[in-house]
């Protein structure tokens, strides 16, 4: 762990605790044409911490995640992953950082020409070339088991349910043992039992691997269980950030309205 005296690390990268945030989003602005989506967002996530991002539909939660993986470029502001600014990196340079990140898309985004097993094997095939075929197959079935899927590994993504696609997407995101997990609504469309299984998995990964996660969710119950901190977005900015109790104590009308379920 870097110490505060180290000259290579700027003071603002260090939290009071002396830890460097794994993800640091600073004053991000993003518009699509005249439509301003993000308006000066600041967020940080530390190792072993889970941040839940809440907000109404269309506030730019998915856009925020896409910016963090570098799939879109912000209009202004900086995004630092493990201390490295991702602005201006080429696609191949970003690759090194992206290997540390697991990304679950809101609509799973499975490769529709590949079977379920091949979808999960895809990152392994490209980045863990040393793995033998049987080792890879073992790893794939283990990953799928972790997200609660077994059997039917040769089915195509179009032949499985939306909730199952989501879990395959999660298994694929976990394939390279990422340090950072970015999940866009991991439990949307899942039954309560599967949702709790996913919550358990996120908690387990956080504890065992000290993984940092940003979880976009509309599921307040799951947000309460898995997150150390929550951030509620409104009109392109963080309206309130804190523990679930902090949010519950808030006097802001929108927060009260949002938590009233």
């Amino acid at each position: 762990m870097a110490t505060a005296q180290s000259t290579s690390i700027l003071p603002e990268e260090l939290e009071e605790s002396g830890r460097e945030p794994v993800v640091a989003v600073q004053d991000i602005h993003k518009s699509f044409g005249a439509h301003k989506v993000l308006n000066g967002i600041n967020l940080t996530v530390n190792r072993g911490e889970t941040l839940a991002v809440l907000g109404r539909s269309g506030t730019g939660k998915s856009v925020l995640l896409r910016l963090i993986v570098g799939l879109d470029k912000p209009d202004s502001g900086s995004i630092r992953i493990c201390g490295e600014d991702i602005a201006g990196l080429t696609i191949d340079q970003l690759g090194g950082i992206r290997k540390k990140m697991g990304f679950l898309f809101q609509h799973a985004a499975l490769y529709d020409s590949l079977s379920v097993a091949d979808n999960v094997a895809f990152p392994l095939l490209h980045h863990n070339k040393a793995l033998s075929k049987s080792e890879r197959a073992d790893r794939v079935s283990q990953l799928l088991l972790e997200v609660g899927l077994d059997g039917n590994l040769d089915r195509m993504p179009s032949d499985i349910s939306g909730g199952m696609q989501k879990r395959v997407g999660l298994a694929r995101a976990l394939a390279l043992k990422p340090e950072i997990l970015l999940l866009d609504e991991p439990t949307a469309g899942l039954d309560p039992i599967s949702s709790r299984e996913i919550d358990e998995l996120i908690l387990k990964l956080q504890k065992e691997r000290q993984m940092a996660s940003i979880v976009v969710t509309h599921d307040l119950f799951s947000a309460k269980i898995i997150s150390n901190r929550l951030a509620l977005l409104d009109q392109g900015n963080v309206l309130i950030e804190g523990s679930f109790e902090d949010l519950e104590r808030s006097d802001i009308a929108f927060v009260k309205e949002f938590l009233k379920q």
């Binding site: 696609i91 690759g95 898309f105 490769y111 490209h126 694929r172």
Partner: peptide, 11 residues
């Protein structure tokens, strides 16, 4: 369907 983005996100 964001599959190309998924490829990119997989480094």
């Amino acid at each position: 369907t964001e599959q190309i983005d998924a490829i990119e996100a997989s480094a």
